[in-house]
Design a protein around this nucleic acid. Structure first.
Lengths: 143, 143
DNA sequence: CTGTATCCTTAGGGATACTG
DNA sequence: CAGTATCCCTAAGGATACAG
């Protein structure tokens, strides 16, 4: 489980994106960090039904190196580490939203109707709101 | 290289999406089909630097089974097979566009400035235009 | 709690030869 | 051209024990 080199320059934007989160777990971690508000190792572990500790550690390390997340100590409890998405990661929210909406349109995944309604009414506003919520949340890295 | 079962119902929309194109190649094939206008086996083979014939065949088969693409014969040349994205696949264009824009924003991938300009001016229109182009192209499955 | 360190297994994928 | 069929091999990932 090497932590890899800082990979080959990709010409294609799709290839580049896949280099970062084109594997089985990374995007799920990002989802939990961004949309589920999880910020602790143990919460991330519990979330993705069955990710192994070494795999999660590896993904968090890669994401940190890529500048998608930051790792700090919880000021109220120095034993606790807190992971938070950076602005770079928050920039993925539009893509995640489109992905979720597509899945919902397939009728195979459960997406809150209120979410779909907001999307249909004003996608731009939905994305902006979600991003604002994330920034507010990590402002105070509370649980 | 089994062609897999028609997979487990996913609750999470991100997980569901990843089940379909969360591997190393599928999204690249989709990119070529949707944005590069490739429609023949050989063109798809040539595109993704180095995809193996068996892997490409497998991905095309899965995508067809999932209803993301259709396979027909070229009316002008019955020996030729033509792959075309379905409306389901065309529905992925918004997500692909967001992905490309994100990569471009990272400054690591080359995306045409004109594309970025169109995106910044009117994202909605860009997506609609791209989708219209795709539908026009596959209307007559020309090369 | 947040990871490392191992060990082990397997699915995914590369290469290549071959076929309708 | 458009695949199929093999063979092989490695990297990714599960399980688990252990450490700071």
């Amino acid at each position: 489980m090497s932590s890899g080199a800082t990979t080959s320059r990709s010409v294609c934007p799709v290839t580049y994106a896949l280099e970062i989160f084109g594997d089985r777990w990374t995007l799920l971690v990002l989802r939990d960090l961004l949309l589920e508000g999880r910020s602790r190792f143990k919460d991330l572990l519990a979330a993705n039904e069955g990710i192994a500790t070494n795999v999660l550690a590896d993904r968090l390390r890669r994401l940190e190196r890529r500048g998608l997340l930051s790792k700090t100590r919880d000021p109220t409890d120095a034993r606790q580490l807190v992971y938070a998405p950076t602005e770079t990661a928050i920039g993925l929210v539009p893509m995640l939203v489109e992905m979720m909406i597509w899945s919902a349109s397939q009728g195979q995944a459960r997406v809150a109707p209120s979410f779909i309604a907001r999307f249909e009414k004003d996608r731009e506003a939905l994305v902006t709101d979600l991003q604002a919520e994330i920034r507010a949340r990590i402002g105070k890295p509370q649980l």
